[in-house]
Simulated assay, not measured.
Amino acid sequence: MKKFLFGILLLLGISCMDTTSKDNPQLSFYYWKTTFALDQVERETLKNLEVRKLYIRYFDVGLKNGAAVPITPIVFKDAVPLLEVVPVIYIKNDVVLSGQLDVKKFAHQLVDFVQQINDRNNIDSQEIQLDCDWTLTSKERFFALIEQLRKETDMKISVTIRLHQVKFASKTGVPNVDRGVLMYYNMGRIASDSLNSIYDRQIAQKYTSGLKDYPLPLDYALPIYSWVVHSRKDQVVRLISRLRVADLTQQAYIRQSGENQFTVEKEIEAFGFVFQAGDILKVESIAPAQLKEMTTDLYQASGKTPKEIILYDLNSKNITTYDQEIFKEMVRRK
């Protein structure tokens, strides 16, 4: 009898452990370079974090002489690790708005080009993701494209969702896809002021009230990237990707004038650009505590646990900025 009772308790214990495990989101990454080649840090990160899925930007779509064409398609220099690959296609809004766009033909071309890339690189995808910031004027064409894609492929279809598309869902519409990925970044205005355009909690909380009632299953994409806002006379000159405070402190004639702000003291060339005396360089990045804050706020606002949290993006410079325990804590529900 004692052995029988012990067996029941053991099974219940295993069952409880499995249930707890299923409640935790899976951790995934976006890969957003035009060449696929993983370095040692990136490979070890995928292994250590037990990543099962990688969202790879396959190509952008823009207009050339009025026609929709692929831009900078991905080139695979390395074989993809043994995990699921989701091709991501970034479609510029003007493509969807183009009066010359044949939606049926375009859908066929998208699926065909994805399949060509997969065939060349021995990749078997189960899902395609579209990244398009559709608007009130383009939503009908974009939603029609989704319907046509469903006829062209058996793969699941997901789309990226912006915060404003959640808050104003009754106006912007809800796409007929298998799921969405909420892009929880790029919230503010890119400017020379002290605000962080990548993430602002106060701005975010103005838009998250609609999460509980949003009818589409949502996963969350969170930022681990950084950039520098280069300004001259209070006007933004450019964004410089993947620079952090440590990069600027190592440069002569660039003086730190605030926590995340630097002033150029004389005309110099650095990071492939020319800077003039008086230029202001503002570093925008995400602190570890902010990542945990994001997940807490999203869970509370939605009342749901997503199946995935996707970090943007897989790059050794981004990864080494953080203790990887932070990534594990983000998906560990207490």
Results as ranks from 00 to 15, higher is better:
Met1Arg: 13
Leu5Thr: 05
Leu10His: 05
Leu11Thr: 12
Ile14Cys: 08
Cys16Gln: 13
Thr20Leu: 09
Thr20Ala: 11
Lys33Met: 01
Thr35Cys: 05
Phe36Trp: 03
Ala37Thr: 13
Asp39Phe: 07
Val41Trp: 04
Arg43Lys: 12
Thr45Ser: 15
Leu46Arg: 05
Ile56Trp: 06
Arg57Leu: 11
Arg57Pro: 00
Phe59Asn: 06
Gly62Val: 15
Lys64Asn: 14
Gly66Glu: 08
Thr72Ile: 08
Ile74Pro: 06
Lys77Leu: 13
Leu82Ile: 06
Leu83Val: 03
Glu84Lys: 10
Glu84Met: 01
Val88His: 01
Val88Arg: 01
Val95Cys: 09
Asp102Trp: 03
Ala107Val: 02
Val111Ile: 15
Phe113Ala: 10
Val114Glu: 14
Asn121Ile: 07
Asn122Asp: 14
Asp124Lys: 12
Glu127Ala: 03
Ile128Gly: 09
Asp131Glu: 11
Asp133His: 10
Trp134Ile: 13
Phe143Val: 05
Gln148Val: 11
Leu149Trp: 07
Lys151Val: 10
Thr153Lys: 09
Met155Cys: 06
Ile157Trp: 06
Lys171Trp: 15
Val174Ala: 02
Asp178Pro: 01
Arg179Thr: 00
Gly180Glu: 02
Met183Trp: 00
Ser194Phe: 13
Leu195Tyr: 14
Leu195Ile: 09
Leu195Met: 12
Asn196Gly: 13
Ser197Asn: 15
Tyr199Gly: 10
Ile203Arg: 14
Ala204Cys: 12
Gln205His: 13
Gln205Trp: 05
Lys206Tyr: 10
Lys206Ala: 08
Thr208Ala: 00
Leu211Gln: 01
Asp213Cys: 00
Asp213Glu: 12
Pro217Tyr: 01
Asp219Phe: 04
Tyr220Leu: 06
Leu222Lys: 00
Pro223Arg: 11
Trp227Arg: 09
Val228Phe: 01
Arg244Asp: 14
Val245Arg: 03
Ala246Glu: 15
Ala246Ser: 15
Gln251His: 07
Ala252Val: 10
Ser257Pro: 02
Ser257Gly: 11
Gly258Gln: 06
Gln261Tyr: 06
Gln261Glu: 14
Glu265Ser: 12
Glu265Tyr: 03
Lys266Phe: 07
Glu267Trp: 02
Ala270Trp: 08
Ala270Ile: 08
Phe271Met: 11
Phe271Glu: 08
Lys282Arg: 15
Ala287Gln: 12
Leu291Ile: 03
Glu293Val: 01
Met294Gln: 11
Thr296Asp: 14
Asp297Phe: 00
Ala301Pro: 03
Gly303Glu: 04
Leu311Pro: 00
Asp313Lys: 00
Lys317His: 12
Asn318Glu: 02
Tyr322Trp: 09
Gln324Pro: 02
Met330Asp: 00
